[in-house]
Simulated assay, not measured.
Amino acid sequence: MPGLLLSGHTDVVPVAGQPWTTPPFEATEKDGRIHGRGTADMKGFVACAVIAMVQAAGRPLKRPLHLALSFDEELGCVGVRHLLRWLEGRLPAPFLCVVGEPTLMKIGTGHKGKAAWRAVCHGQAGHSGLAPRFMNAVHMAADLVAALRDVQRELAASGPREEGYGVPYSTVHVGTIQGGRALNIVPAECELSFEVRNVSADDPERSWHG
């Protein structure tokens, strides 16, 4: 029978450079609140879910109650991929999944899809004094970024919309870009990563693969 799934992740983002006034990796009670890295996103929910599972174990249930915890969510939802492969064929899909991400104590009934890509631009290395003779990989990457921004403008102006999200249309975001070794060398390689957060009417796989 399809059950109820409580889902969360166990990792957190780093604390370097953040002005913590309590030990970030210890739970510190202060003014009626628990302070610590991840208490809101999302260790508080994980603790509540575990307690709910313990309490439910001694009660008759109308539906199964499942707990799914993943790792390395902050690095790109790495752990949940292993979990999904393991679950495939073992359990029926749940009729309801509750994900404990913080939503200011309001229920969020949907989430945009996400797809991520890595693009590597290959050029030709050469001395910058003869720059026009060589293919600059950073310039190629900049052109790609400009094209992605054009796509974003089109999505904002005329793309499918779903009201209720903070941004009601699909978004394109370049997160990292790296290239070049020295100022006087035309870069031979530049790498960038970008993601699409799509509304349900968009299919990023179809859109980005022609």
Rank of each mutant, 00 (worst) to 15 (best):
G166V: 05
G164S: 07
P102R: 03
V174L: 02
V186E: 02
K62A: 15
G108E: 08
R153E: 13
R59T: 14
E205M: 07
P168N: 09
A57F: 09
A157H: 07
G159E: 04
V199H: 05
E26I: 01
D150Y: 04
V145S: 07
V98A: 05
L69S: 12
K43S: 00
M135V: 12
H173R: 07
G38S: 05
A141W: 07
E163A: 14
L84G: 01
A93N: 06
A116C: 10
T171M: 01
G210N: 06
A125W: 03
H82S: 09
V174T: 15
L192A: 03
V174Q: 01
K106N: 12
W208R: 04
A146M: 05
G108N: 04
R133E: 10
G129L: 01
P2L: 03
G38L: 08
I34K: 02
R161C: 08
R59I: 11
H127D: 08
I107H: 08
T109L: 11
S128N: 09
A141I: 05
G110Y: 03
P23I: 03
A27D: 15
R63M: 10
Q124T: 13
A188K: 04
I107E: 13
I51C: 00
E26D: 14
K106H: 14
G123N: 07
N184A: 10
L104S: 14
R161V: 13
R63T: 06
R153Y: 09
R149V: 13
P92T: 05
D31A: 10
K43C: 01
A115Q: 10
H122L: 08
A125C: 12
Y169P: 11
H111N: 09
V196H: 03
H209E: 13
E189D: 15
G76I: 01
G79I: 11
A131N: 06
V78R: 14
V172P: 00
L67Q: 03
R81L: 12
N198E: 08
D150P: 02
D72Q: 12
G38I: 08
T176C: 05
A52F: 00
A157F: 02
R59E: 11
K43E: 02
T22M: 05
N136S: 10
P2T: 06
L183T: 14
S128G: 12
N184T: 13
A40L: 09
G129D: 05
A93P: 00
R118I: 14
E162I: 04
T21L: 04
P92K: 02
E191H: 03
L91M: 08
G110N: 07
P94Q: 04
P187L: 11
R206E: 11
D41C: 07
V196A: 05
F45L: 03
H66C: 09
T28M: 07
L87I: 07
T39Q: 03
L69T: 15
H173C: 13
L69Y: 07
